[in-house]
Simulated assay, not measured.
Amino acid sequence: MSKLRIVTWNINSVRLRLPLLSALIEALGPDVLCLQETKCPDDLFPHAGLEALGFTHRAARGMKGYNGVAILSRIPFRIRGDDPDWCARGDCRHLGVDLDVPGGLELHDFYVPAGGDIPDREANPKFAHKLDFIAEATAWNAARGPATRAVMLGDLNIAPLESDVWSHKQLLDVVSHTPVEVEALTGWQKAGDWYDALRHFVPPPDKLYTWWSYRARDWEASNRGRRLDHIWVSRDLAGKLTDWRVHKPARSWLQASDHVPVMVELTL
């Protein structure tokens, strides 16, 4: 039996924060590292620096200044070429691969639209795009049926549970925790029969956050966090979850992202 460590992190610019990956590797030891918000066109992606860190196998889907996802791996994989172009925008928010592990493993890295500041479809096109994106992903999952030998992760930009936010009452009308978003994300999860890997280890009502705003004067003292980053596994992998980590110290790194890396370990 072999162990597989998968980490997801909204890095908020892969070129700016490339030096931080050494600390991440030392702390979490990922076999596979999935990034979001890389903000890097494919021709400028820092392949040499990532090769030096031991990630021999890499795939990136990026654009200048916005969005972008990447999968870095010590394990060979095949890029899935038939996955959808969500909302027909070509905006680099999803990358899927098939990992070459015993029995195979399908892995999807998502960066869901943030949705702007106004939680109203008519008044805010960004919020409408977020809901439309999730609706398409939900329909796609429903058409495929329950996931098997699969992991779905990334910055999903929604904190679904009351214990995923510092104040359920105060954030009910704040984008990322509104009822319509929670309903949408829950529907997506049910459509693929996905299992929430982090809540396997930290069940509600225990608080669990992966993001702390840059706006906080002292993010650690105020601790007004949200769980925006998720790792879901197919039901057949739920019993193979052996370890987890939300690496909170990363929020204090020099030039830190406002998200922290999240890890799960599976025994395959």
Score class of each variant (00 low, 15 high):
Ala52Tyr: 00
Pro46His: 08
Gly90Cys: 13
Ile79Val: 15
Gly54Trp: 11
Ser163His: 01
Trp140Gly: 10
Ala147Ser: 14
Ser73His: 05
Lys126Phe: 02
Glu122Ile: 08
Ala59Trp: 12
Trp86Leu: 15
Val97Thr: 04
Glu51Thr: 14
Gly68Asp: 07
Asn124Ile: 01
Leu161Trp: 05
Asn67His: 08
Met63Thr: 10
Trp140Cys: 11
Val69Met: 09
Gly103Ile: 08
Asn67Met: 00
His94Glu: 09
Asp109Asn: 15
Cys87Arg: 11
Leu153Pro: 02
Ala128Cys: 06
Glu136Thr: 11
Gly154His: 04
Leu95Gln: 08
Met152Thr: 11
Ala52Asn: 13
Thr148Ala: 15
Ala48Thr: 11
His108Arg: 14
Pro125Lys: 07
Cys34Ser: 08
Pro160Asp: 08
Arg89Phe: 00
Asp82Trp: 00
Arg78Phe: 01
Leu50Ala: 02
Met63His: 01
Asp117Gln: 12
Gly154Ile: 06
Glu122Val: 12
Arg80Glu: 13
Glu51Met: 12
Thr138Gly: 03
Arg93Tyr: 07
Ala142Thr: 11
Ile118Glu: 13
Arg89Leu: 15
Ala52Val: 00
Gly81Trp: 10
Gly54Tyr: 11
His129Asp: 12
Gly115Arg: 02
Ile134Asp: 01
Ala147Met: 08
Pro84Thr: 11
Gly145Thr: 10
Asp85Asn: 15
Ala123Val: 01
Tyr66Asp: 00
Ala135Leu: 11
Arg149Tyr: 03
Phe45Asn: 02
Asn141Lys: 09
Leu50Gly: 03
Gly145Gln: 10
Phe127Leu: 07
Glu51Phe: 13
Val101Ser: 10
Leu105Tyr: 08
Pro119Tyr: 06
Leu153Ser: 06
Ala70Thr: 08
Arg121Lys: 12
Cys40Tyr: 01
Ala59Arg: 13
Leu107Val: 03
Asp120Leu: 08
Tyr111Arg: 08
Trp86Gln: 03
Leu53His: 09
Arg149Ser: 14
His177Glu: 07
Phe133Ala: 10
Gly62Ser: 05
Pro125Ala: 03
Leu171Ile: 01
Arg80Cys: 13
Trp166Met: 03
Glu37Thr: 07
Phe133Tyr: 14
Leu107Thr: 02
Gly103Leu: 10
Ile75Asn: 06
Ser167Leu: 04
Ile118Pro: 05
Asp173Phe: 07
Leu95Trp: 05
Gly104His: 01
Ala88Ser: 14
Leu33Phe: 06
Gly81Arg: 14
Asp120Val: 10
Thr148Phe: 03
Pro160Thr: 09
Leu95Ile: 14
Gln36Trp: 07
Gly154Gln: 03
Leu35Gly: 02
Asp173Trp: 10
Leu33His: 03
Gly68Ala: 05
Ala139Pro: 02
Asn124Val: 01
Pro113Asn: 03
Asn157Asp: 09
Lys39Pro: 04
Val101Thr: 10
Arg74Tyr: 04
Thr148Lys: 15
Ala150Gly: 12
Trp140Phe: 13
Tyr111Phe: 09
Ala52Trp: 02
Pro113Tyr: 00
Leu53Gln: 13
Pro119Val: 09
Ser73Lys: 06
Thr178Gln: 01
Ala150Met: 12
Lys64His: 10
Ala60Val: 14
Gln36Lys: 04
Ile134His: 03
Pro46Trp: 04
Leu161Thr: 00
Arg89Ile: 00
Ser163Phe: 01
Ala143Met: 09
Arg78Leu: 12
Phe110Val: 10
